[in-house]
Amino acid sequence: MKRIISLFLSILLFHSCEVIEGPYMSGDVNPIDTSNNYVKKVLIEDYTGHLCSFCPDAARELDVILDVYPNAVGLAIHGVNNFTRPYVVDSVFNSDEKYLYDFRTSWGKDLDDFFEVSANGLPKGTVNRIDYSSNGNHRKDFAQWSSLVADELEKEIKFGINIDITQTPLMLSDQFDIIINSEALSSLNGNYKVIVCIAENNITTWQKDGTIDDPNYKHKHVLRSFLTPTWGDNLAGPEINNGDVFSNAYTCIISDLENDNINYSTTLPLGVGNTGQWNTENLSIIAYIYDISSYEIIQVEEKSFISN
């Protein structure tokens, strides 16, 4: 018995650790096969807040993931909670005018409330909303994201999405028609919905970043508005044939959407409507399809307004 135990301990001690010697950086990412018209894409929803000092770590991770995996799409969601509340205008206690901008949206609140992300501590996010359960398995720490993105990109592509953003001469200068064409790439059984939203990149304003208050922080992929209801428009189901194409059309006027958010801000605690000044050049449309039985996002596409 003693010999068996000694042998067991020897195996345990000598084969159960891996000390990595530098250099620590290695390996290249396999290039994505883009010979097909459509490629599988993955959506990372980064729940964040300008008063969350650890959230920039997650935002930087998202940036690197988007660089490493060009078929990943990022969306920063600001719910309504203590991490996202704006500071009050106060010349004594807030003479630097910190954190006056209001990133909160009603859709961000709906999503955050439903997936219970901020309530369980930020930063956290979802990757294609996989593993949804009431126990919170869908809430992923940022260090989990890259592995999950790699796994998701390996999955079979079920839909292709094409986003068409058009503007005709008769339209207002900030009015756009958005057409989402979704093509089934295999025969499917299930019910699917499509969601279309608008995100803005590079909003420069205050952010708590570790131990500093950064006035020049660039907030990226910020959710601005939804063109569909929070839980989407019906797309198809329950029986879908390979090659079926579905079209969903929307018209949006950016200044109207901006005003909607301003009005919404004023209904919130500490909100004074300071959520305007959208920059159309930095706006993009994000469209995604999800399975309503599991909430899992099965395809996503992003297109910038200025790439017309």
Binding site: I20, M25, G27, D28, V29, V68, S146, S147, A150
Partner: peptide, 8 residues
């Protein structure tokens, strides 16, 4: 697995 860094 990590596409950039070695992970024990």
């Amino acid at each position: 697995t990590n596409p950039i860094f070695e992970i024990p």
